[in-house]
Design a protein around this nucleic acid. Structure first.
Length: 265
DNA sequence: CGTATTTGACCTGCGC
DNA sequence: GCGCAGGTCAAATACG
Protein backbone atom coordinates (compact mmCIF):
# COMPACT_ATOMS: atom_id res chain seq x y z
CA UNK A 1 0.00 0.00 0.00
CA UNK A 2 2.77 2.39 1.00
CA UNK A 3 4.59 1.56 -2.19
CA UNK A 4 1.51 2.46 -4.21
CA UNK A 5 1.13 5.74 -2.35
CA UNK A 6 4.78 6.52 -2.92
CA UNK A 7 4.51 5.70 -6.61
CA UNK A 8 1.45 7.90 -6.91
CA UNK A 9 3.23 10.73 -5.13
CA UNK A 10 6.18 10.44 -7.51
CA UNK A 11 3.79 10.43 -10.42
CA UNK A 12 1.97 13.46 -9.00
CA UNK A 13 5.25 15.30 -8.61
CA UNK A 14 6.19 14.46 -12.20
CA UNK A 15 2.85 15.73 -13.45
CA UNK A 16 3.26 18.95 -11.46
CA UNK A 17 6.63 19.53 -13.09
CA UNK A 18 5.19 18.86 -16.53
CA UNK A 19 2.31 21.11 -15.74
CA UNK A 20 4.61 23.99 -14.89
CA UNK A 21 6.62 23.29 -18.05
CA UNK A 22 3.41 23.46 -20.06
CA UNK A 23 2.41 26.69 -18.35
CA UNK A 24 5.76 28.12 -19.37
CA UNK A 25 5.24 26.92 -22.91
CA UNK A 26 1.81 28.53 -23.01
CA UNK A 27 3.32 31.76 -21.79
CA UNK A 28 5.94 31.66 -24.53
CA UNK A 29 3.28 30.93 -27.15
CA UNK A 30 1.13 33.72 -25.82
CA UNK A 31 4.02 36.18 -25.91
CA UNK A 32 4.92 35.13 -29.43
CA UNK A 33 1.34 35.69 -30.52
CA UNK A 34 1.20 39.12 -28.90
CA UNK A 35 4.48 40.04 -30.54
CA UNK A 36 3.21 38.94 -33.96
CA UNK A 37 -0.01 40.83 -33.40
CA UNK A 38 1.77 44.06 -32.54
CA UNK A 39 4.05 43.65 -35.57
CA UNK A 40 1.00 43.19 -37.73
CA UNK A 41 -0.59 46.33 -36.31
CA UNK A 42 2.61 48.30 -36.91
CA UNK A 43 2.62 47.17 -40.53
CA UNK A 44 -0.99 48.23 -40.91
CA UNK A 45 -0.19 51.66 -39.47
CA UNK A 46 2.69 52.02 -41.93
CA UNK A 47 0.41 51.12 -44.80
CA UNK A 48 -2.07 53.80 -43.81
CA UNK A 49 0.67 56.41 -43.92
CA UNK A 50 1.66 55.57 -47.45
CA UNK A 51 -0.46 57.47 -49.91
CA UNK A 52 -1.79 55.51 -52.82
CA UNK A 53 -0.07 52.84 -54.82
CA UNK A 54 1.84 53.35 -58.01
CA UNK A 55 -0.62 51.72 -60.29
CA UNK A 56 -0.37 53.97 -63.28
CA UNK A 57 -0.60 52.14 -66.55
CA UNK A 58 2.13 52.69 -69.13
CA UNK A 59 1.35 54.88 -72.10
CA UNK A 60 0.63 52.71 -75.10
CA UNK A 61 1.94 53.80 -78.46
CA UNK A 62 -0.69 52.81 -80.98
CA UNK A 63 1.96 52.40 -83.66
CA UNK A 64 3.74 49.85 -81.55
CA UNK A 65 2.32 46.41 -82.22
CA UNK A 66 3.87 44.92 -79.09
CA UNK A 67 2.06 45.08 -75.79
CA UNK A 68 3.80 47.21 -73.16
CA UNK A 69 6.06 45.45 -70.75
CA UNK A 70 4.94 45.45 -67.15
CA UNK A 71 8.04 44.49 -65.27
CA UNK A 72 8.43 44.34 -61.53
CA UNK A 73 9.34 47.79 -60.25
CA UNK A 74 12.74 47.89 -58.60
CA UNK A 75 12.32 51.07 -56.57
CA UNK A 76 9.38 49.93 -54.49
CA UNK A 77 9.95 47.16 -52.03
CA UNK A 78 7.54 44.44 -53.10
CA UNK A 79 5.32 42.44 -50.80
CA UNK A 80 7.08 39.22 -49.93
CA UNK A 81 5.61 36.27 -48.11
CA UNK A 82 7.03 32.92 -47.09
CA UNK A 83 4.93 29.81 -47.37
CA UNK A 84 5.75 26.37 -46.11
CA UNK A 85 5.17 23.63 -48.64
CA UNK A 86 6.28 20.14 -49.54
CA UNK A 87 10.03 20.32 -50.32
CA UNK A 88 9.55 17.64 -52.99
CA UNK A 89 6.92 19.71 -54.71
CA UNK A 90 8.51 21.65 -57.58
CA UNK A 91 5.41 23.28 -58.99
CA UNK A 92 5.81 26.57 -57.09
CA UNK A 93 2.05 26.92 -56.86
CA UNK A 94 0.50 28.78 -53.94
CA UNK A 95 -3.22 29.10 -53.47
CA UNK A 96 -3.74 32.54 -51.98
CA UNK A 97 -7.29 33.39 -52.94
CA UNK A 98 -6.48 34.50 -56.45
CA UNK A 99 -6.17 32.66 -59.72
CA UNK A 100 -2.75 32.89 -61.35
CA UNK A 101 -1.47 31.99 -64.77
CA UNK A 102 2.17 31.06 -65.08
CA UNK A 103 3.91 32.93 -67.88
CA UNK A 104 7.55 32.17 -67.32
CA UNK A 105 10.21 30.40 -65.37
CA UNK A 106 13.82 31.33 -64.96
CA UNK A 107 16.88 30.04 -63.16
CA UNK A 108 18.47 32.88 -61.26
CA UNK A 109 22.09 33.30 -60.35
CA UNK A 110 21.62 33.50 -56.59
CA UNK A 111 19.40 30.41 -56.21
CA UNK A 112 19.59 26.93 -57.72
CA UNK A 113 15.80 26.62 -57.62
CA UNK A 114 14.02 28.15 -60.63
CA UNK A 115 11.85 31.24 -60.20
CA UNK A 116 8.32 31.08 -61.59
CA UNK A 117 6.44 34.14 -62.85
CA UNK A 118 2.67 34.42 -62.50
CA UNK A 119 0.09 36.91 -63.72
CA UNK A 120 -3.41 37.21 -62.24
CA UNK A 121 -5.88 35.52 -64.55
CA UNK A 122 -9.08 36.37 -62.69
CA UNK A 123 -9.53 39.55 -64.67
CA UNK A 124 -8.00 40.20 -68.09
CA UNK A 125 -6.88 43.71 -67.17
CA UNK A 126 -5.64 42.88 -63.69
CA UNK A 127 -2.06 44.18 -63.29
CA UNK A 128 -1.23 41.94 -60.32
CA UNK A 129 1.76 39.67 -60.69
CA UNK A 130 3.86 37.49 -58.47
CA UNK A 131 7.06 35.52 -58.64
CA UNK A 132 7.65 32.40 -56.60
CA UNK A 133 10.93 30.74 -55.77
CA UNK A 134 12.05 28.21 -53.21
CA UNK A 135 14.00 29.59 -50.29
CA UNK A 136 17.69 29.06 -50.88
CA UNK A 137 18.20 27.94 -47.27
CA UNK A 138 15.07 25.83 -46.82
CA UNK A 139 13.49 24.18 -49.82
CA UNK A 140 10.30 23.53 -47.89
CA UNK A 141 9.63 27.28 -47.94
CA UNK A 142 8.39 29.14 -50.98
CA UNK A 143 9.19 32.83 -51.26
CA UNK A 144 6.39 34.65 -53.10
CA UNK A 145 6.96 38.24 -54.20
CA UNK A 146 3.78 40.10 -55.11
CA UNK A 147 3.56 43.15 -57.31
CA UNK A 148 0.64 45.32 -58.29
CA UNK A 149 -2.85 45.56 -56.93
CA UNK A 150 -5.75 43.40 -58.00
CA UNK A 151 -8.55 45.38 -59.59
CA UNK A 152 -11.15 42.83 -58.53
CA UNK A 153 -12.17 40.84 -55.47
CA UNK A 154 -10.46 37.67 -54.34
CA UNK A 155 -12.17 34.31 -54.44
CA UNK A 156 -14.32 34.19 -51.31
CA UNK A 157 -13.42 30.66 -50.36
CA UNK A 158 -9.80 30.20 -51.25
CA UNK A 159 -10.06 26.52 -50.46
CA UNK A 160 -12.29 25.89 -53.44
CA UNK A 161 -11.09 22.54 -54.65
CA UNK A 162 -11.77 22.89 -58.32
CA UNK A 163 -13.72 25.97 -59.25
CA UNK A 164 -10.99 28.33 -58.07
CA UNK A 165 -8.45 26.69 -60.29
CA UNK A 166 -9.01 25.86 -63.91
CA UNK A 167 -9.32 22.23 -64.77
CA UNK A 168 -6.10 20.58 -65.73
CA UNK A 169 -3.94 23.11 -63.99
CA UNK A 170 -0.92 21.97 -62.06
CA UNK A 171 -2.16 23.83 -59.02
CA UNK A 172 -5.19 21.66 -59.00
CA UNK A 173 -3.28 18.44 -59.27
CA UNK A 174 -1.05 19.72 -56.57
CA UNK A 175 -3.67 20.25 -53.94
CA UNK A 176 -3.48 16.69 -52.82
CA UNK A 177 0.15 17.04 -51.95
CA UNK A 178 -0.49 19.51 -49.18
CA UNK A 179 -1.67 16.89 -46.75
CA UNK A 180 1.66 15.16 -47.08
CA UNK A 181 3.40 18.16 -45.60
CA UNK A 182 1.93 17.71 -42.19
CA UNK A 183 2.68 14.16 -41.26
CA UNK A 184 5.00 15.19 -38.47
CA UNK A 185 2.41 17.15 -36.54
CA UNK A 186 0.70 15.75 -33.47
CA UNK A 187 -2.63 14.30 -34.50
CA UNK A 188 -5.24 16.54 -32.85
CA UNK A 189 -3.28 19.59 -33.89
CA UNK A 190 -2.71 18.07 -37.28
CA UNK A 191 -6.42 17.58 -37.82
CA UNK A 192 -7.14 21.19 -36.97
CA UNK A 193 -4.22 22.42 -38.96
CA UNK A 194 -5.51 20.39 -41.90
CA UNK A 195 -8.92 21.94 -41.38
CA UNK A 196 -7.43 25.39 -41.35
CA UNK A 197 -5.03 24.70 -44.18
CA UNK A 198 -7.96 23.51 -46.22
CA UNK A 199 -9.31 27.02 -45.92
CA UNK A 200 -6.13 28.90 -46.66
CA UNK A 201 -3.92 26.25 -48.23
CA UNK A 202 -0.71 27.16 -46.49
CA UNK A 203 0.87 28.61 -43.40
CA UNK A 204 1.88 32.21 -43.85
CA UNK A 205 5.04 32.49 -41.82
CA UNK A 206 5.66 36.17 -42.21
CA UNK A 207 4.95 39.20 -44.35
CA UNK A 208 6.92 42.38 -44.71
CA UNK A 209 5.16 45.04 -46.71
CA UNK A 210 2.31 47.45 -46.80
CA UNK A 211 -0.39 45.93 -48.96
CA UNK A 212 -1.19 42.95 -46.82
CA UNK A 213 -4.87 43.66 -46.36
CA UNK A 214 -5.46 44.17 -50.02
CA UNK A 215 -3.40 41.13 -50.92
CA UNK A 216 -5.49 38.73 -48.92
CA UNK A 217 -2.76 38.01 -46.40
CA UNK A 218 -4.56 37.01 -43.27
CA UNK A 219 -2.15 36.26 -40.47
CA UNK A 220 -4.35 37.98 -37.93
CA UNK A 221 -7.39 36.15 -39.21
CA UNK A 222 -5.51 32.90 -38.85
CA UNK A 223 -4.47 33.61 -35.28
CA UNK A 224 -7.94 34.80 -34.34
CA UNK A 225 -9.61 31.87 -36.04
CA UNK A 226 -7.43 29.48 -34.08
CA UNK A 227 -8.25 31.18 -30.81
CA UNK A 228 -11.96 31.31 -31.53
CA UNK A 229 -12.13 27.82 -32.93
CA UNK A 230 -13.48 25.58 -30.14
CA UNK A 231 -12.24 22.53 -31.98
CA UNK A 232 -8.74 23.87 -32.08
CA UNK A 233 -8.72 24.77 -28.38
CA UNK A 234 -10.24 21.38 -27.58
CA UNK A 235 -7.57 19.68 -29.64
CA UNK A 236 -4.91 21.76 -27.91
CA UNK A 237 -6.32 20.75 -24.54
CA UNK A 238 -6.34 17.15 -25.64
CA UNK A 239 -2.73 17.39 -26.73
CA UNK A 240 -1.83 18.91 -23.38
CA UNK A 241 -3.74 16.18 -21.56
CA UNK A 242 -1.96 13.52 -23.57
CA UNK A 243 1.33 15.18 -22.78
CA UNK A 244 0.54 15.13 -19.07
CA UNK A 245 -0.34 11.46 -19.22
CA UNK A 246 2.91 10.79 -21.01
CA UNK A 247 1.35 9.80 -24.29
CA UNK A 248 3.27 10.94 -27.32
CA UNK A 249 4.83 13.55 -25.12
CA UNK A 250 7.68 14.36 -27.44
CA UNK A 251 5.41 14.85 -30.40
CA UNK A 252 2.97 17.04 -28.59
CA UNK A 253 5.66 19.31 -27.29
CA UNK A 254 6.65 19.92 -30.86
CA UNK A 255 3.67 22.17 -31.08
CA UNK A 256 5.82 25.22 -31.30
CA UNK A 257 5.00 28.22 -33.37
CA UNK A 258 5.80 27.52 -36.97
CA UNK A 259 5.72 23.74 -36.66
CA UNK A 260 9.47 23.68 -36.57
CA UNK A 261 9.97 20.09 -37.63
CA UNK A 262 10.07 21.15 -41.21
CA UNK A 263 12.89 23.56 -40.45
CA UNK A 264 15.25 20.70 -39.82
CA UNK A 265 15.83 20.32 -43.57
C1' DC B 1 -10.76 21.47 -78.75
C1' DG B 2 -9.91 24.90 -75.33
C1' DT B 3 -6.99 26.25 -71.77
C1' DA B 4 -2.84 26.14 -68.98
C1' DT B 5 2.07 25.18 -68.76
C1' DT B 6 6.69 24.79 -70.59
C1' DT B 7 10.73 26.63 -72.41
C1' DG B 8 13.92 28.85 -75.56
C1' DA B 9 14.33 33.30 -77.56
C1' DC B 10 14.06 37.97 -77.02
C1' DC B 11 13.97 42.49 -74.52
C1' DT B 12 15.59 45.71 -71.12
C1' DG B 13 18.24 47.70 -67.45
C1' DC B 14 22.47 48.03 -65.24
C1' DG B 15 27.37 47.80 -64.21
C1' DC B 16 31.85 47.97 -66.06
C1' DG C 1 29.52 49.56 -76.27
C1' DC C 2 29.39 45.08 -74.30
C1' DG C 3 28.04 41.40 -71.44
C1' DC C 4 25.22 39.70 -67.89
C1' DA C 5 21.05 38.78 -65.43
C1' DG C 6 16.25 39.23 -64.70
C1' DG C 7 11.73 39.61 -66.82
C1' DT C 8 8.52 38.66 -70.68
C1' DC C 9 6.83 36.68 -74.97
C1' DA C 10 4.91 33.25 -77.70
C1' DA C 11 5.07 28.81 -80.12
C1' DA C 12 4.98 24.16 -78.77
C1' DT C 13 3.23 20.92 -75.77
C1' DA C 14 0.28 18.74 -72.24
C1' DC C 15 -3.94 17.75 -70.30
C1' DG C 16 -8.91 17.14 -69.27
Amino acid sequence: MDEKVEALQVELQRMKEENSALRLMFEVLSNKFKSLQSQFQDINKESEQIIGFNNSMPIVDSTNYKRPRLEFPTAKRPLQIFVRTNPKDDTLMIRDGYQWRKYGQKVTKDNVSPRAYFRCSMAPSCPAKKKVQKCIHDKSILVATYDGEHNHAAIQDSSMPSSSTPKGSVANKNNNNNSKNNNDLPLPILENYKKWSHQTDSIRLCCDDVTMQKSNIKIEEYANSLIKDPEFTAALAEAVARTITGQSKEQDLNLNLGFQRGDEN
